[in-house]
Design a binder for these strands. Structure first.
Lengths: 216, 216
DNA sequence: ATCGGCTCGGGAAATATGCCCAAGGTAGCG
DNA sequence: CGCTACCTTGGGCATATTTCCCGAGCCGAT
């Protein structure tokens, strides 16, 4: 079985790489540190499963997934993210992911998820699955305005709402601060809001971000 | 019995003035549209009760209350506010209010509250009282950083977190946009935060503002 | 091929912020 | 009564951000 790990933080990636190696000796692991590389690796050799971080620099995990699935519709992609907000989970599933796991999960769960998704079964972290099920907000749960946003705009919207410093966002997305600023204006227009503050309110209202944990 | 109504919105004020007149024929009502006027009216004739809106232009309801109580410690003040956030209720009680009521209350409740507080009994809206009781956050519930703020700073903090446009805040408080801006910086320093967004997160975390209702 | 939408950014002007400083008010204190 | 301390208010000025407008490159659809 061949698995491609996509995560921009080398330590993290190698961390769970070694975990997987230990617990699943019969997998061949490959790694990629961003979407670009992921697309490349997949072309070289088609894996049975891609384990994808959502927060990639450059083209995001979501966008990478969309492109991967476009080229290889049968490809299985398991999201592995720090974030547990439902709308993000939905986004991931929308772009064609077959599973979603948070980084809080135990190694056993990770292994289980990898096995199941590689076999073609969906796997969504217990808690999230329950919430998704209970929250029949299926495709329209978000504020209608949010669906006006393009993928890119939505990503930026989320980061802004989390309070990441602008430079960091620009850096993470590999775009100039100027472009980010332009996007910010664009997003605010689409959402029909005037200030950053309203943006945060809206984000929290729609469950796109959660309060309580300090922004990282 | 003499009651002074303090509220900057004439319609609203006169609205419940007529309500009270109808339901409590034996009260003499006086009105004031801001803190300044309230202080004046009270000097002219000492009322049995002051019904105070929290969101006054110029000196706020809280500040007005503090000053009134300073001059006339026996004066009874019933807050009558749109907002139902616990920290605000605590603030009101801290500055010497004897009651707190939201504008969602029914006329009957208002009458009841007026009667009781005028008689010197505390009256806190059922729901809020329960929450206060359940939430033994008594005096320290807030983030410790929030207690670093002065009264004025706290007011501004709340308005900022609600997303009111800067000009409107400045206008409401009768200060220049520049002063507001300076306060903003000051508040952010005291709270040790870098952005508006973190400010909102903090405000929501500590229950100073609530999400779900569009900012007005 | 042409059109429209998305992404990306430059330029100029308007705004907002950060930081420093100062005046007026008020409270507390020896 | 001065003195000190602090709060509130704002000006000045440099810097950062935002807004608005515009154009280029890309890609998918007609």
């Amino acid at each position: 079985m061949k698995v491609l790990l996509v995560d921009d933080h080398a330590v993290v990636r190698q961390g769970y790489a070694s975990l997987l190696r230990a617990l699943l000796p019969d997998v061949q692991l490959r790694e990629a540190c961003d979407g670009e590389q992921a697309l490349q690796r997949v072309q070289e050799e088609i894996p049975n499963l891609v384990v994808m971080d959502i927060g990639l620099p450059g083209i995001s995990g979501l966008e990478t997934t969309r492109r991967l699935r476009q080229r290889l519709p049968q490809l299985r992609i398991l999201f592995f993210s720090m974030h547990d907000e439902l709308p993000l989970v939905r986004q991931a599933l929308d772009v064609g992911a077959i599973g979603y796991l948070t980084k809080n999960s135990s190694p056993e769960v990770l292994v289980e998820a990898v096995k199941r998704t590689a076999a073609g079964h969906a796997y969504i972290e217990q808690q999230l699955a329950t919430q998704l099920a209970c929250n029949p907000t299926s495709s329209d749960g978000l504020d209608p305005r949010l669906r006006e946003l393009t993928q890119r705009e939505f990503e930026i919207f989320v980061m802004l709402a989390r309070g990441l410093p602008p430079r960091q966002i620009a850096e993470k997305l590999c775009i100039s601060a100027k472009t980010l600023s332009n996007y910010q204006t664009l997003v605010k227009n689409k959402l029909q809001i005037a200030s950053q503050v309203e943006l945060v309110h809206l984000a929290i209202d729609s469950g796109v971000v959660r309060v309580g944990l300090e922004s990282a």
